[in-house]
Design a protein around this nucleic acid. Structure first.
Length: 504
RNA sequence: GGAGGCGUAGCUCAGUUGGCAGAGCAGCGGACUCUUAAUCCGCGGGUCCAGGGUUCGACCCCCUGCGCCUCUACCA
């Protein structure tokens, strides 16, 4: 109990220090604390209880009728005091709504109390709807309650909150100050809902598989490591749900998807956040072609229902999502860029050709690696309209089946939109012996990297299947026209401002 | 990890060959019962990111560190 109290005191001290850092002193807070006491003295409890509303502000606006009695609640975001009457705006996340407070309507005491309110305070109001001379729908207030006193000031009303660091670190301020940010996240939420609706409509079932794994497989990324105290062993955050979803195919699920977070121990960038949302879909008895049809329908459905258009952006960044989408083989793209004779060149000639095309060449690379560098550096970013790139070299994709007509390439596509890889899909490898061979090649003799448990599952028989992963954050960037992944994730990762314990 | 840019009031931003630190909004006091970036009168507000150095004097020049942004690297 004592330690609990100490902990609380310690936390409060910390908050105090942070508060001082962020507010540059307590002047504003002191004033608001004084206002809190004054309101209390007038009988307004600073932190109220439930307040039944007629509806959200957007609902009230939609159902506006002259003279209608309503109750509403929201945050006070603007206040124009005219002596014996006040015009103010409240905001509740759905809309801004004007309220009109007159001294002789709500009474002298309540009017005096209203004048003590600070911008940012949550209030509940009751009154009658009317339209002002300038034709703004407004609430004539007959009574108000204080619901929550705000002790720290909000960002400025006109310019909003611009500082990108503050916008990411204190997203709640961004959401209050910049309504378009709220709308963008509403769209993200709507997109996730539409994806689920679409997949449910096609008979897929949503499942949940472990995020905490003894072995992080299904992709080639570095995992986050953590420790499980009760079992005394290290665990990893998953880098992909793939190997568990395939176990479900073995178990008889035939159409499953998982829409949730993956964690990869990589750097931060405009297109990388260490935890990101991935949609993985598996369809038994399907293949890469059924995935192609699925993703094309899924993305056009989302674009149409959530964003209301199949054409995004303008000029060079214009993306046209109208199906059918182009399909092109990896090899054809390479030859188109590097010349018909590329695959016949010896290594030195290929290096020279790549250099002349602007690729920085690592002398350790073989022709395959050099080719892929060429693809990533000069071709991928030019694929603006949706493009299915197919028939990748087998060494790039260890979990996919080979093409029937050519065992050196695999039956996959990578969907590129806006020069960005959005969705890879495979005809999944279900041959356990071939899978073991490829794992062995990858693990290079390190037995601890062999996922024997997964191989055992495969040996019980996995139906042929199509599988696909869609990077939801990147899809959101493309559909919304956002600049950065940090703009489409509510709380993107930034370096901690004060170093956490246990750093290097 | 490497290169470049940025960091000034609660917010948005000016600023100085190196010579007392500025505006708008927000805040405080006052006037105003149809305003909406309300208006009018008056007032307060600063660790100029942090720490060193050069200088009579540094917000400004130099060095180091921290954070953010962009590019790059890592990343199926």
């Amino acid at each position: 109990m004592l330690s609990r109290i100490c902990w609380i005191l310690c936390q409060e001290a910390k908050v105090g220090v942070i508060m001082e850092e962020r507010t540059g002193g307590n002047e504003y807070r002191e004033q608001r604390l004084e206002n809190l006491e004054r309101l209390k003295a007038l009988g307004y409890a600073p932190y109220g209880r439930a307040f039944p509303r007629t509806g959200r502000l957007a609902d009230v606006r939609a159902g506006f009728e002259e003279g209608k009695q309503v109750t509403v609640a929201g945050r006070l975001v603007a206040c124009r005091d005219m002596g014996k009457s006040i015009f103010a705006h409240i905001y509740d996340g759905t809309d801004r709504f004007q309220v009109y407070v007159q001294k002789n309507k709500i009474g002298e005491d309540a009017f005096a109390a209203f004048k003590i309110l600070d911008l940012g305070d949550f209030i509940g109001l009751e009154g009658e709807l009317f339209t002002t001379r300038t034709e703004e729908q407004t609430l004539k207030v007959s009574r108000f309650e204080l619901l929550s006193k705000s002790l720290l000031p909000l960002p400025e009303k006109w310019h909003g909150l611009q500082d990108v660091e503050t916008r990411y670190r204190q997203r709640y301020l961004d959401l209050v100050a910049n309504h378009d940010v709220r709308e963008l996240f509403n769209k993200r939420i709507a997109m996730l809902r539409e994806i689920r609706t679409f997949l449910f409509g096609r008979g897929f079932q949503e499942v949940e598989t472990p995020m905490l794994q003894a072995m992080a497989g299904g992709a080639a990324a570095t995992p986050f490591k953590t420790h499980y105290n009760a079992l005394g062993c290290d665990m990893f955050m998953r880098i992909a749900p793939e190997l568990y979803l395939k176990r479900l195919l073995v178990g008889g699920f035939d159409k499953v998807f998982e829409l949730n977070r993956n964690f990869r121990n990589e750097g931060l960038s405009r297109t990388h956040n260490p935890e990101f949302t991935m949609l993985e879909i598996y369809e038994a008895f399907g293949d890469v072609n059924s995935m192609k049809e699925l993703v094309q329908s899924l993305i056009t459905h989302v674009a149409q229902t959530v964003f209301g258009t199949l054409v995004i952006g303008e000029g060079e960044r214009r993306i046209d999502l109208t199906p059918p989408w182009r399909t092109v083989a990896y090899r054809d793209l390479i030859v188109e860029k590097a010349g018909d004779d590329w695959y016949g060149l010896d290594l030195d000639a290929a290096r020279a050709r790549a250099t002349s095309l602007g690729v920085e060449v690592d002398p350790a690379w073989d022709l395959g690696e050099l080719t892929h560098e060429l693809y990533e550096k000069t071709i991928e970013k030019t694929l603006i309209n949706p493009t299915f790139v197919t028939r990748f070299p087998v060494e790039l994709v260890p979990l996919a089946s080979a093409c029937v007509d050519d065992p050196t390439v695999v039956d996959v596509f990578e969907l590129e939109i806006g020069g960005c890889e959005v969705a890879p899909a495979y005809t999944e490898l279900n041959d356990p012996l071939e899978q073991r061979r490829r794992f062995e090649e990858q693990a290079a003799g390190d037995a601890s990297k062999m996922d024997e448990d997964f191989l055992m599952a495969l040996e019980h028989g996995m139906p042929p299947a199509g599988g696909m992963g869609i990077g939801i954050d990147r899809l959101m960037i493309i559909l919304s026209g956002a600049e950065s992944i940090r703009d489409v994730i509510l709380f993107p990762h930034l370096k901690p401002k004060t170093a956490p314990a246990g750093g290097e």
